[in-house]
Write a protein that binds this DNA or RNA. Structure first.
Length: 878
RNA sequence: GGACACAUAGCUCAGUUGGUUAGAGCGUACGGUUCACAUCCGUAAGGUCACAGGUUCAAAUCCUGUUGUGUCCACCA
């Protein structure tokens, strides 16, 4: 009847299925057949950088988001998942510069701005195409009609508009400040783009000159050429007499003017307790200088070299100048002490070059300026409040604290970068005149600011720039897509960019549209290799998601990134895990194949009428299990517990359904069973779809149902048998009984041909159990006859056993002795457990304080255990 | 220096608000199996839940401290 192969071949189906999904149009919320009042559900895809093809971290992101999207689509939401990519300004420029230098030995200055940018696009556009293709291979149900790019025309417009708006509000300003400067990238870096490397350094203690009273300590003597003050603690008795005095002195041949100031920030116990203040080359010193109105002397230039007018030091590198100064100090007898300490060296997070703090004219976003449209609050306070008050929730919750702490310490954000690839700042100069405008001035003579914007400036606008802002924002009102889909439901991203990206999105959304960009932030961890190492190209331990998809199928790759993973925690992934997920996919495949092969009439999939008048214990059991599954999976998905959802699905599918119910159906063959199997298969496919969309779609196509699986409704809990919520006999007991018989057969190495006769003493359950004789006899138990009696004695010397409240004994040929050691072990364990439990049940405090249902439960448990122990003892004696 | 997380079976990890004899996958051992699936089925072994206290009738779970591992933030002149 069906042509399905014994093993699922993902490659054979995936590409064609994706094309059909695209053709259906259901990735686009506008095409979903929904009533107008249907609620919206939006996720914007965190745009991957176009520097490189996707890695497994991206694959994890896609698996999680697509699971959310497909679940909500099935739930009847007007679901939008909006795709895009990020130009990743500095990262991209570095990658391309490096590549060009390796291939052609030229720097960007050799090409010039226009030609260099042309080269960047030449490199990057094919990568972008690859990325989009990879996303499709994962099966992501993104609305491609709304595809965006952080540097496409609409986003360029949005960025310029934002800049101008912020400038008009006075939030963006230009100012001179000490910034983190990378001499290699020739650009500023934001505070959080600076990495720290621990290193051993020499701390030099010396005096500037013989006539200067206070020795100071530093690891960077060369910057001392720019000192304009020495700071001490106000209460430091050693230096009281000098505070406020100014000295003119000669420092290694260079003139310095040093004022002695007092500030509480100085640590009395470090070094000599006195700090040489270098306003131009240290951020903290610069802040001191602002506070005490100190002059600033610049001694290091943008290439990291010592500047002019510094005599013998001019033009030297910082390291060479340091050596020379130390030599000079030694010569003059001013060097007091050299000691080795560990300290942190600031380096560029992109290229690892040592950062030079330099004063420079840059553009900033003020985080402290009160903003009228935010009710007088600053970006910082507004963005702080929305998290503090719970308007935005972080999952896991602990990240709220990290966010709040970061916000609390936030300084003005330097947004100008001295690189070429990116959004050029929309500011033009003509002499002293300055023009901030969305469009270039038409009159001649204006020169545009050569700098570009920090990449997070454009990605910070991602939730609303992708929904048509600023066109969809008129007179303080949202229109079109912006009105329909903003705020988005959830931002799903890696915890590593919580501060870099998430915080900026919140600030920019509050500024632009006066509302939060999303209600929830779900943060996933990193994907590590099998040994817990970060995957990286240089280590060669990275797994390529597309290669994995080709080997095991997209469904398996997706599952492996969801199972065993908890929010905010890193996870390890190796091929064995993907393989086991592939096996699960194949299991579902075969379940589908089998059920399809035994269904006499596929009409059941369409009309869906279940006749439940003639159900057996097993039927009701599996339907209840399935009901529980529906509730559990829904509940887990609502709470972002993907792993638990997938595990619940796996346990039901593999164990309850395949290992038990399908096997039962082979014995208790009936029309009801076919119908129940059909019902479960159909709805199970819907439940699995968020996790493994491809294989479920292939099987769905075999059902002969007209509706598309993409929009098939999430299953409802089925009413099974209202008058009997509680079964007389728990089916679990039947399963345990069968398991025990199998165990005995296995221990005795019995061949299937060796039949046994079994008698079960079932007490009050004798009648109910009698109905299940056929199952007990035939479910791979190898029993010739099964007799069930209510009361009786286990005959002396027979092979006996017990399960829960049942005792049983077996007779048969070729029965060898049972495993005594194992039995004794079991008896010992059970005895200990019984002793513990009876002690508790005799404890008056437990009886008076524990809730009644717990006590009752414990009591039944004790009775059952005691019966089981008795049976085990008889078995041992036989 | 500040903060956060983690420590549970050989390995990778679950364990929801305290309440069955602490679970799963992989691995291991034993047994089975051609009629949906060897990408299969059954059974078993294996854990002082890092350590020490405390709260409670009851702690892997809550509190305090200790040790170890990892991450983030700040940054030392």
């Amino acid at each position: 009847m069906t042509e399905l192969a014994p093993t699922y071949d993902a490659k054979k189906y995936e590409a064609a299925i994706y094309q059909r999904w695209l053709a259906s149009g259901f990735f686009n919320p506008d095409n979903l057949p929904l009533p107008p009042e249907a609620p919206n559900y939006t996720i914007v895809l965190p745009p991957p950088n176009i520097t490189d093809k996707l890695h497994l971290g991206h694959a994890a992101m896609l698996a999680i988001e697509d699971a959310l999207i497909r679940y909500h689509r099935a739930k009847g939401y007007r679901t939008l998942w909006l795709p895009g990519t990020d130009h990743a300004a500095i990262a991209t420029q570095n990658v391309v510069e490096k590549m060009l230098y390796q291939q052609e030995g030229k720097t960007r200055y050799d090409y010039g701005r226009t030609e260099f940018l042309r080269r960047v696009w030449e490199v990057v556009l094919p990568i972008q195409t690859t990325i989009l293709d990879q996303i499709k291979k994962m099966g992501a149900s993104l609305d491609w009609s709304r595809l965006a790019f952080t540097m496409d025309e609409p986003r360029q417009k949005a960025v310029r508009h934002m800049f101008v708006e912020m400038y008009k509000e006075g939030v963006i300003y230009r100012g001179e400040r000490v910034v983190n400067w990378c001499p290699r990238c020739q650009s500023t870096l934001a505070d959080d783009e600076v990495d720290y490397r621990e290193q051993m350094a020499t701390l030099y203690t010396f005096k500037y000159s013989p006539d200067f009273p206070i020795p100071i300590s530093t690891t960077r003597p060369e910057t001392k050429l720019g000192d304009t003050a020495v700071a001490v603690h106000p209460q430091d008795e050693r230096y009281q007499e000098y505070i406020g005095k100014t000295y003119s002195l000669d420092f290694c041949g260079q003139p310095l003017t040093i004022k002695i100031i007092a500030d509480r920030s100085v640590d009395r116990n470090f070094g000599t307790g006195a700090v040489g203040v270098t306003p131009a080359h240290s951020l903290t010193d610069w802040q001191l200088a602002e506070k005490y109105n100190l002059p600033m002397v610049k001694v290091i230039d943008t290439d990291g070299l010592l500047g002019d007018n510094l005599g013998q030091f001019s033009g030297l590198s910082t390291l060479a100048a340091r050596d020379l100064i130390v030599a000079e100090l030694k010569k003059r007898g001013l060097l007091i002490k050299e000691e080795t300490i560990t300290n942190n060296l600031s380096v560029c997070y992109r290229c690892g070059t040592t950062i030079e703090p330099l004063p420079s004219k840059q553009w900033f976003v003020s985080v402290d300026k009160p903003i009228t449209r935010l009710g007088g609050r600053s970006l910082k306070t507004a963005a702080y409040e929305v998290a503090k008050t719970g308007q935005i929730k972080f999952i896991p919750e602990r990240f709220t604290k990290r966010y709040l702490e970061w916000m609390d310490n936030l300084h003005d954000w330097c947004i100008s970068r001295q690189i070429w690839f990116g959004h050029q700042i929309p500011v033009w100069y003509q002499g002293d005149e300055i023009l901030v405008s969305e469009t270039a001035p038409t009159s001649p003579g204006w020169i545009q600011d050569p700098d570009t914007l920090d990449t997070w400036f454009s990605s910070g606008m991602w939730t609303f720039s992708t929904l048509g802002w600023p066109d969809n924002w008129q007179a303080g009102h949202k229109l079109g897509d912006l009105a329909r889909f903003h705020p988005t439901e959830v931002l799903e991203t890696g915890y590593d960019i919580l501060t870099l990206w998430v915080s900026r999105m919140i600030m920019m959304s509050l500024f632009a549209v006066g509302e939060i960009p999303f209600y929830e932030v779900y943060l996933h961890g990193l994907v590590l290799d099998e040994h817990g190492q970060k995957m990286s190209k240089s280590k060669g331990n990275g797994l390529d998601p597309v290669a994995m998809i080709e080997l095991y199928g997209a469904d398996a790759v997706r599952l492996s990134l969801l199972i065993g993973v908890t929010p905010g925690n890193d996870c390890r992934l190796g091929t064995t895990k993907i393989e086991s997920c592939r096996n699960l996919v194949n299991k579902l495949w075969n379940i589908g194949r089998y059920i399809l092969s035994i269904i006499p009439d596929k009409a059941i999939f369409v009309h869906n009428n279940l006749d439940l008048s003639q159900t057996t214990l097993a039927d009701r059991w599996i339907l209840r299990q399935f009901n529980d599954l529906i509730s559990a999976v829904s509940n887990y998905l609502e709470h972002y517990e993907f792993s638990l959802a997938a595990e619940a699905l796996r346990d039901f599918t593999w164990h309850d359904l395949a290992d038990w119910y399908i096997e039962i159906s082979k014995i208790e063959d009936s029309k009801e069973k076919c119908n129940i199997l059909a019902y479960i298969l159909k709805h199970l496919l819907i439940l699995w779809q968020p996790f493994m969309p491809f294989v479920t779609q292939v099987l769905w196509d075999e059902l002969g149902v007209e509706d598309n699986l993409l929009i098939a409704s999430w299953p409802q809990v089925l009413k099974i048998n209202p008058e009997a919520e509680q079964e007389e006999l728990d089916f679990k007991l039947v399963q345990d009984l069968i398991g025990e018989i199998r165990n005995i057969r296995s221990l005795n190495h019995l061949q299937p041909s060796q039949k046994m006769k079994m008698t079960i003493i079932a007490g009050q359950w004798a009648d109910a159990l009698s109905k299940e004789i056929k199952l007990i006899q035939n479910l791979r138990t190898g029993l010739e006859t099964v007799t069930i009696i209510a009361n009786g004695q286990v005959p002396e010397g027979s092979l006996a056993g017990a399960v829960g409240p049942f005792s049983f004994y077996l007779e048969g040929e070729a029965m060898s002795a049972v495993n005594h050691a194992q039995l004794e072990h079991k008896i010992q364990e059970l005895t200990a457990a019984i002793n513990n439990l009876s002690r508790r049940l005799n404890d008056p405090e437990f009886l008076s304080k524990a809730p009644e249902h717990i006590i009752a439960k414990e009591q039944t448990k004790l009775t059952n255990w005691q019966a089981e122990l008795e049976a085990l003892r008889q078995q041992l004696n036989s």
